[in-house]
Design a protein around this nucleic acid. Structure first.
Length: 143
DNA sequence: GCCAACGTTGGC
DNA sequence: GCCAACGTTGGC
């Protein structure tokens, strides 16, 4: 059983005005806080150390700009007073050689059922290994 | 700037 | 428990 076989893949969104890829790179490791949606919380809670996620710029850019690794699994979000929300820590792995735009994703029939496309408002979504590999190819990312 | 999708709130 | 009103997200 290799590590890759047990690894899960995700996509997390951030508005570059609020928190950009450049800031992620500068900070290296960053707590992914502020998620206040139950479906997104469920996805955060399911993340395991070593999982990888695409870093997507929503609103401005609308493209996958980098890859991050989950370095700390779900724990109570310190920015939530109730203590009932979840965050993880993510570490910058590297930038997409060629950012994958939303337009490019929509133009690819094989990605029609990607959660990013189907549930456009959800900020933390799972990515299947098949979709991950295809998106990596499109972005010139060496797995 | 507009609008569609969707989650939340509050009246009944 | 239903549903209309409203707020937010995010694409275009």
């Amino acid at each position: 059983m290799s590590e890759a076989a047990s690894r899960s893949y995700w996509l997390v969104k951030s508005e570059p005005d609020a928190f950009s890829w450049d800031e992620q790179v500068a900070n290296d490791v960053e707590p992914w806080t502020g998620v206040r949606n139950h479906q997104a919380k469920k996805n955060l809670a399911a993340m395991k150390k070593g999982d990888l996620a695409f870093f997507y710029h929503s609103n401005e850019g609308r493209e996958i700009v980098g890859v991050v690794e989950i370095v700390r699994e779900g724990y109570p979000d310190p920015t939530a007073e109730s203590g009932s929300w979840v965050c993880v820590d993510v570490k910058a792995v590297g930038p997409m050689p060629r950012p994958v735009t939303l337009a490019g994703i929509r133009a690819e029939p094989a990605l029609a059922d990607l959660a990013l496309v189907r549930q456009s408002r959800l900020s933390v979504v799972p990515v299947s290994p098949e979709h991950w590999n295809l998106l990596c190819q499109m972005g010139g990312w060496q797995n």
